[in-house]
Simulated assay, not measured.
Amino acid sequence: MKLLTALRRVTILLAFLLSAVPDLAQVSVTIAQLLQFLKSKQAAKESDADLADRLSSVSLSEQLTSATLSRLLTETSIGPKASEQLQLLAFASVFFPPPRAEVPDVPPPDSAARQRVLFAAVSYVNTTLQLLPDFLATRTTLSFENTLVQTGPRPKATLHLVRGSHREIAYRNGREVADTASTDSGLNTWGEFGPILKTVLADSFMGNVEWARWQTSQTGALLAVFRFTVPQSASHYLIDFCCYQKSEDDPVQYSFHAKPGYRGEIYLDPATGVIDRITLHAELADADPVAISEIAVQYGYVDIGGKSYVCPIQGIAVTEVHNLRMESVDGVGLEKHINIVHFLNYHKFGSTSRILPK
C-alpha cells in the first residue's frame, strides 16, 4: 500500500507581490469572521477581482460545510472569482471540525457503542470492500496553485487553476491498477480505492483512536466521527517531493522523501460501519521542505453494473511547500497546491460475446 503525495515544482522567477491585505492576509479565521468580512466588503462595493485576491490569502480554522457554503454564497452574492476562492477555502477546510453550532446536539455514545462502530468499520473494510467488482472509472483532477502570475503591472499570488486532467482508472482483483504510463505533473495522490482505508485502520490501532463528535453528512445522515493519531513508527504515509533548494546560494535541486506520523478523522455510519469520509494530515517537522501534506477522500454510493456500491466520489489533496523566493524576497508565505479530484462514470469491467448468424 502506498499513500503517495508527489510534487514537481517548476522553477519560476518571482518578482514581487501585491501589497498585503491587512484585515485577512495570511491569517486563519472562523466561519463567523469570514461571513462578517464578506458582508463588509460587499457593503464597501469591493470588486470581484480584489475580493478574490484577499480570499486567496485566507485560511479557515473551521470546516466550511456544503450547507454553510451555499448559505454564504446566497447571503453575500459575491462574484464568480470570489466564489471560486470561497469554494477552494471550503475544500481546504475539510480537515477541521465544523463550528460548534453545527455539531448535532446528540449525546456521545458510550464506550461499548463506540467499540461496536469501530469493529463494524473494520469488518466493512476487510469484507465488503473485497466484494467490489472489477470496474473502470474516470478520474478528473483540477489543480490549483498560488504561484505568481503576471496579470498587470505587478504580479499576483492568487490561488488559480493551472491544469485539468482526465484519465481512466481500473480496479481489478480487489485493487486499483497503477497507471505506470501516467505523466501528470504537479501534485498527485494514489490509494483512494481501499488501500487508504485498510492502511489507516491498521496504522491507527497501532496509535490512538478516540471519539471526536457527531456530524451531519452531505445527505443529512448522522455520522460518528473518530479522531486518530499514528506515530511515525507505525506510519505508511509516504511523501515523495522534488525539488527544492536548501539555500539561495546552492543551485542543487534536492528531493525529499519521508514517512511521517499522521493524524486525521474517519466518518462512519454508526449503524453499518460504512465509511463516509477520511482525512489525513502529515506530522512534519519545521525544517522539512514540505510544510503541509493533507489528503481527504469522500465516499458515496455509485451504480456499477446495476448494483450499488460505496466508492470514492471526491478527493482533496493540499500541499504547502517552502519556496525561498516567495518567502524571503517577496514575503508572500508558502507555495500552495490544491487538487480537487472527482471520480465519475463508474462502469463494470468485463467482456461480452455473441454469436452472429451466418
Rank of each mutant, 00 (worst) to 15 (best):
L4D: 12
A6C: 12
I12S: 15
A15P: 02
F16D: 13
L18P: 11
S19E: 12
A20W: 03
A20L: 10
D23T: 04
L24V: 12
A25T: 01
A25G: 11
S28V: 03
T30V: 01
A32E: 08
L34E: 01
L34H: 01
L35R: 15
A43P: 00
A43Q: 07
A44E: 08
K45H: 07
A49Q: 13
D50K: 14
A52P: 00
L55P: 00
S56R: 01
E62I: 00
Q63F: 07
Q63T: 03
L64R: 05
T65K: 12
T68A: 06
T76A: 03
I78P: 03
G79N: 09
S83C: 08
E84T: 07
F91C: 00
A92S: 13
F95V: 03
F96C: 15
P98Q: 06
R100D: 11
R100L: 12
R100E: 13
P104E: 01
D105F: 08
P107W: 01
P109W: 05
A112N: 12
V117A: 12
L118S: 00
F119N: 13
A120I: 02
V122Q: 01
S123V: 05
Y124A: 10
Y124V: 10
T128A: 15
T128C: 09
P133H: 05
D134A: 15
F135P: 10
L136A: 14
L136N: 15
A137C: 14
L142N: 14
T151D: 10
G152H: 04
L159Y: 02
H160V: 00
G164C: 05
R172E: 11
R172G: 08
R175F: 05
A178S: 08
A181G: 15
D184F: 08
D184H: 07
S185P: 09
G191W: 10
G191A: 08
G194V: 09
P195L: 00
T199F: 07
T199I: 08
T199Q: 15
G207M: 03
G207Y: 02
V209R: 09
R213I: 03
Q218H: 15
T219A: 14
G220S: 02
L222S: 10
V230S: 04
P231T: 01
Q232G: 06
H236G: 12
H236C: 08
H236P: 05
F241H: 09
C243Y: 06
P251W: 04
Q253L: 15
S255K: 13
R263P: 14
D269I: 06
D269Y: 09
A271M: 06
I275C: 12
T279P: 12
L280I: 13
A282E: 03
D288F: 06
D288H: 09
P289I: 02
P289F: 02
V290L: 05
V290I: 06
V290R: 06
I292F: 05
S293E: 04
A296T: 02
V297A: 00
V302T: 04
I304D: 00
I304W: 02
I304P: 01
K307G: 07
S308V: 06
V310R: 11
P312D: 04
V318Q: 15
V321T: 13
H322F: 11
L324T: 08
V329F: 07
V329N: 07
V329Y: 05
L334S: 07
K336S: 09
K336F: 04
V341E: 13
H342Y: 09
F343S: 01
L344S: 13
H347T: 08
H347S: 11
K348V: 09
T352I: 04
S353N: 13
R354M: 13
P357N: 11
K358L: 14
